[in-house]
Amino acid sequence: MNIFRFAGDMTHLASVLVLLLKIHTIKSCAGISLKTQELYALVFATRYLDLFTDYISLYNTLMKLIFLGSSFSIVWYIRYHKIVRRSYDKDQDTFRHYFLVLPCLLLALLINEKFTFREVMWTFSLYLEAVAILPQLVLLQRTRNIDNLTGQYVFLLGAYRALYILNWIYRYFTEPHYVHWITWISGLVQTLLYADFFYYYFQSWKNNVKLELPA
C-alpha cells in the first residue's frame, strides 16, 4: 500500500459517501444519472468476485463491502425509494448504457491477461469503469446547472482514478515485474474522460461562479 493508492481509495470512498449523503439527507437524486450508478454497481459486482475466496487484508475486504453496499443502495434509493425516485429525471437520463456494457464485454473476451471467467470478469469491470461516467457527464451537459454536491461527486470520482495512476507509476518503479497495461490504459482513458469536466470545475471554482458546462 502506498500513499497514492490510499489517497485514491479515500477519495473514492468520499465520492460514494457524498452521493449517499446527498440522496439520504435531502431525499433527492436530481442531476444524478441512474445509468451511471447501475454501471458502477455492475463494475463492483464483477470486480469483487474474489471477495469470499481470496482474503488479502481486512482493509481490502472492508472497502469492497462498502463499495458494493453503497453502490447497490444508491441504485435502490433512486429506483425504489418512494420520495427519491420522484426526483429522478428519466427523460434526461437516456444514455443507452447497454451500448457500453456489450463492447466492454467483447473487449474483455478479446483482450485480457488470462482467459478464465474470473479474469475476464475482472477485465470487463476495468473497461466498464472507464466509461461508466459517460451517462452522468451527458446528463450534466443536458441539465447544465450542477448542484455542488453532484459536482463534488464527479470531481472526487475522477480524482480517485488520477491518484491511482500515480500509484501505478510508484509501484512500477518500486516493485519488480509490476506491469499491467490493461489496468493502466483503462485507468488513463477513464481519467481523460473527466478531463474536460475537471477543466470547467476548476474554472468555476477559480472564478467562484456556479459550475456550468457548455452545451
Partner: peptide, 10 residues
C-alpha cells in the same frame, strides 16, 4: 504470486 499482486487493488 503474480495474480495475488495484481488483485490487491480495489
Amino acid at each position: 504470486y503474480q495474480t495475488r499482486a495484481t488483485k490487491d487493488e480495489l
